[in-house]
Design a protein around this nucleic acid. Structure first.
Lengths: 245, 245
DNA sequence: GTATCCAAGATTGTAGACAATCGGTATAGT
DNA sequence: ACTATACCGATTGTCTACAATCTTGGATAC
C-alpha cells in the first residue's frame, strides 16, 4: 500500500473552493441555527451531525462549538470527564442578567458616542431616525412583517455602538447582542405588542444623542434594555422557560 | 508497512494519564505565558512550538489559541487567506478601553453586591479588609514582594464580583480581568508607587458595601479602575508601548 | 550591484483515524 | 422476576497526515 498516494483521501478541493475559513463559517452558521431557534434550547448537540450538515470535518465544527460555549450559546453538560454540549436553555434569570449586561455595555458605548463632535452626532441621529421611523410604520400599519423588526432594532443599536465603541467594546457587544436577539426571536410576541414603547424609548435616545448629553444617552439605553427585559420576563412567565427542565 | 498496527501510533496513554482536558490546560497555560509576559507582546506565535512546549498535539493548542483570540489576548495578522497569530500588543488606547470595560463590569456586579442582605455584606467586608490590610502592610513595610500584590488586589476585586454577579457576568469578568492584570504585571512600577492611592480607594469601596449604597459601590469601583488607568497611562507614556511598531 | 524568479522550508488549515468513555441493552446468576 | 455484569453502539478527545499557502534564500539575468 502506498504510503502517500498523490490523489489523496483528503478531499482534494477545487481550486477556488478553499473558502478561507471553515471555522468562521461553522461558527456563524451554528450560531444562526441557535439564534433562530432551529436548534432548540436544551437540545443536544452532536458534532458529527453538524459536520455533515455543514459538509466539513469535525475539526472546525468542534472549535466553533468551543467558541460558542465560551460565549454562552452552548453549555457543557459535564459527565465525569467527558463533556456533552447542549444548546443553552432560555431562562428568566439568564435573560435578566444578559439584558443587564448588554444594557450597560451599550450604555458605556453610548456615553462615548455622546462625546463625538456635533456633526457626527447629527448625522448618526439622522440614520437612527430612519430606522425608528420604519419601526413606527410597521407599528401603525399593523403589518406584522416581524422579520424586519429584528433587523431594524439591531441596526438602531448597532449604529450607536459602532459610532462610539473601540474595538474591544465593539467585539464584546457583537458577541453578546445575538444572544439577546435569541430571546426576542423565540419569544417574539413580547416585541410585537410592546413595540410602541420601545419606539418611544428610541426617540428619547436620539434626542439625548443630538443634545450630546452622555448621562442621558447612557440612561436611555439602559432603560430601553431594562424595560425590554421586563416585557420579556412577562412573556416568559406566560409561556414558560424553554430548554430547562 | 502495516496500515493498522494494534499498538498504535496514537500515543497510547497510561491509565491515569487521561488528563481530562488538554484544551483547557493549553488555554490556561498559554494565557499564563502571555499574562506573565513570557510571550512578549507583538511576538509571533507558532502552533507547533507551543504544542511541543506543552507536550501535546497541535489540535488542542490550536483551539486554545482561537479562544485566546476571541478574548483579545492574541490577534490575527491577516495575510490573504491564512492568518498568523501574534500576541496582542500593549497600547495606551487599548488599556483605556479595557480598564473602562472592566470598571463598568465590576460596577454592575458591585451594585448587586450592595443589594445583598446586611449579614453577607458585613462578612464580605471583613474579608475585603483582610486583603486590603495586607496590601497596606506591604506598603508600609516598603517590602516590595511585588508578587503578592497582584494576588491580593485580584482577590479583593474577585470577592466582590463573586458575591454579586450571576454566572454570565462572572464569566465575563473572568475573561477580562487577566488582561488588566497583564498590563499591571508588565508595567509593574505603576502599581508599586501609587499603591497607597488604590488602598485608599479600596477603603471607600468597603465602606460603601457596608452601607449597602449601590450607587456608591459602583462609583467606587469605576473610580478605582479609572484612576488605575490614568496611573498606568502615565507609565506607558514614560516607558513606551510594547509590541506595537 | 540590483532586481526577479524559482525552489525549498516553514506554517497553517482541514480531514480522517484511533482510543477512551458513556449509556444503554442483552444476558446470566440468584 | 430482579439485580448485576458484560458487551455494543454512539460520541467525544486527541493525534497524525496531508494539502495549500506563505516566506526565505539563493541562483540567474540584466
Amino acid at each position: 500500500m502506498p504510503v502517500r498516494a498523490t490523489s489523496s483521501k483528503h478531499a482534494p478541493r477545487a481550486r477556488g473552493d478553499h473558502e478561507g475559513n471553515s471555522l468562521r463559517k461553522a461558527f456563524f452558521e451554528i450560531r444562526e441555527l441557535i439564534v433562530h431557534g432551529r436548534l432548540s434550547p436544551g437540545s443536544w448537540i452532536v458534532e458529527a451531525d453538524l459536520a455533515r450538515h455543514l459538509s466539513m470535518s469535525r475539526t472546525p465544527v468542534r472549535s466553533a462549538l468551543h467558541w460558542l460555549q465560551r460565549e454562552g450559546y452552548v453549555i457543557e453538560h459535564k459527565n465525569a470527564r467527558k463533556s456533552r454540549m447542549i444548546v443553552a436553555p432560555l431562562t428568566k434569570e439568564d435573560a435578566g442578567e444578559l439584558y443587564s449586561i448588554i444594557g450597560h455595555v451599550e450604555g458605556l458605548a453610548g456615553r462615548r458616542t455622546a462625546a463625538l463632535p456635533k456633526a457626527s452626532r447629527v448625522e448618526l441621529a439622522g440614520r437612527l431616525k430612519g430606522f425608528n421611523n420604519q419601526l413606527r410604520e410597521i407599528l401603525t400599519a399593523k403589518d406584522s412583517r416581524a422579520a424586519g423588526i429584528f433587523d431594524l432594532d439591531r441596526n438602531f443599536h448597532r449604529s450607536i455602538i459602532e459610532s462610539g465603541a473601540g474595538p474591544r467594546l465593539l467585539a464584546l457587544h457583537k458577541s453578546i447582542e445575538p444572544q439577546a436577539e435569541r430571546y426576542w426571536r423565540l419569544y417574539a410576541s413580547s416585541i410585537i405588542n410592546d413595540l410602541h414603547l420601545s419606539v418611544a424609548e428610541h426617540d428619547e435616545i436620539i434626542a439625548a444623542i443630538v443634545a450630546g448629553d452622555a448621562v442621558r444617552v447612557e440612561r436611555g439605553l439602559q432603560a430601553n434594555w431594562e424595560n425590554g427585559c421586563n416585557r420579556l420576563a412577562h412573556v416568559i412567565d406566560i409561556f414558560g422557560e424553554r430548554g430547562s427542565w
